[in-house]
Simulated scan of single mutants.
Amino acid sequence: MPTPSTSAPPGSAPGGAPSSAASLTARRRRLVLGLLVCAVLLLAAVLASLMVGSNALSPSAVLGALRHYDPHDEASLIVVDKRLPRTLVGVLAGLALGLAGTVMQGLTRNPLADPGLLGVNAGASLAVVLAISVAGISSTAGYVPFAFLGAALASVVVYTIGSLGREGATPVKLALAGAAVSAALTSLVTAVLLTSNEALDQLRFWQVGALAGRGYDVVWQVLPPVAAGAVVALALGRSLNGLALGDDVARALGQHVGRVRAASAVAVVLLCGAATAAAGPIAFVGLVVPHAARRLVGHDYRWILAFSALIAPTLLLVCDVIGRVVAYPGELEVGIVTAVVGAPVFIALVRRRGTVGL
């Protein structure tokens, strides 16, 4: 009786299973295609942000204004002078929040980590309040350096406190230190606001989170820290994969855990500080986007970071456009819309089995 052939077709392992190399290549192609789709969606969100508003414009009018700027043309004034800087701030803030949230979740191994975890929002808020009440700052561009400095100092304090002891900056210690510092700084913010009506009136417009009223001066102020933070964050993908396996395994793989945590903290400070300074403490973007990216690509932080860098600004710009439409001819601040949109999305994500696992 003839023996059945056991030879496998080319590109397959014995038994007919696809070879590992072919499977990895196919997966990489799908991920690259997914990145291209996300990039197209981001471009569509940018175009929608330039088109939609109290004075709606057609795509041809927007493209014409971008290609041939005329200071005497109404469309050029609307697109280039008003909506373009607002859109650029949205792209930079979204990119920063998406990458920062991903790095923070990987660093702390906490699925609920967001820019508020390391005291970023509280530190920026306190700095803005002091800038208003003490220095008399009243412009959005004037808030940016103070907010960035406050966010950076708060993050450094949290990381320093979390690093005390023999074990260094463990995820649990960082989370506890962040909660304690945030509570203390929030109390100081409340104390200052109770004694300054002017600070209260001005802070509420910044603290809700908004892109409206941001000009090119804000763009140029936050571009360098966002660019530097993005480079550091994207370079941390392989290291975050090691940390996800635990500190002991990461050390066994040859990683210097302390250096990885320090580099992650630098990236978070640059990204969160710049985003919070530019647009205020916007909720849910840095929390939801890494979970969404993780569901698309799995647990490889190299791909999670890349997808988060595209999904987050798309989400922020879409929420900004929604805010202009639902309250026409006025608008809702983007921080309100992200909270309304992000809360149910996050609930749906965490209810799915395995989503909260890092």
Rank of each mutant, 00 (worst) to 15 (best):
A8F: 09
P9Q: 15
P9E: 15
A13C: 07
G15M: 06
P18T: 15
S19I: 13
A21D: 12
L31S: 08
L35G: 13
C38V: 03
L43V: 15
S49A: 13
A56W: 15
L57D: 09
L57C: 07
P59F: 12
R67K: 14
I78S: 04
P85Q: 02
V89Y: 00
A96N: 06
V103E: 00
G106S: 03
R109A: 08
R109W: 07
P111E: 09
L118W: 07
G123W: 02
S133N: 10
V134E: 06
S139M: 08
A141N: 06
F146S: 09
A147D: 02
L149I: 14
A151N: 05
V157N: 07
R166C: 12
A169Q: 04
P171Q: 03
V172I: 14
A175T: 14
A175F: 13
A183T: 08
L185M: 05
L185W: 00
T186L: 15
L188F: 09
V189H: 04
A191Q: 10
L193K: 06
T195V: 14
E198A: 15
Q207C: 10
V208I: 13
G209Y: 07
G215H: 07
G215D: 10
V218Y: 05
A230E: 08
A230H: 09
A235W: 12
G242S: 13
G242I: 08
L243D: 02
D248V: 07
R251A: 12
R251T: 11
L253Q: 13
L253M: 14
G254R: 03
A262F: 15
G273E: 11
A274C: 11
A274Q: 05
T276Q: 10
A277V: 01
A283H: 11
A283R: 04
V288L: 09
P290F: 13
P290L: 11
V297N: 05
V297R: 02
L305S: 01
L305Y: 12
F307L: 13
S308H: 04
S308I: 06
A309P: 04
L310I: 02
L317G: 04
L317F: 05
V326E: 05
P329W: 10
P329H: 11
E333F: 10
G335H: 02
I336E: 04
V340R: 11
V345L: 15
V345F: 11
F346N: 00
A348I: 05
L349H: 03
L358R: 12
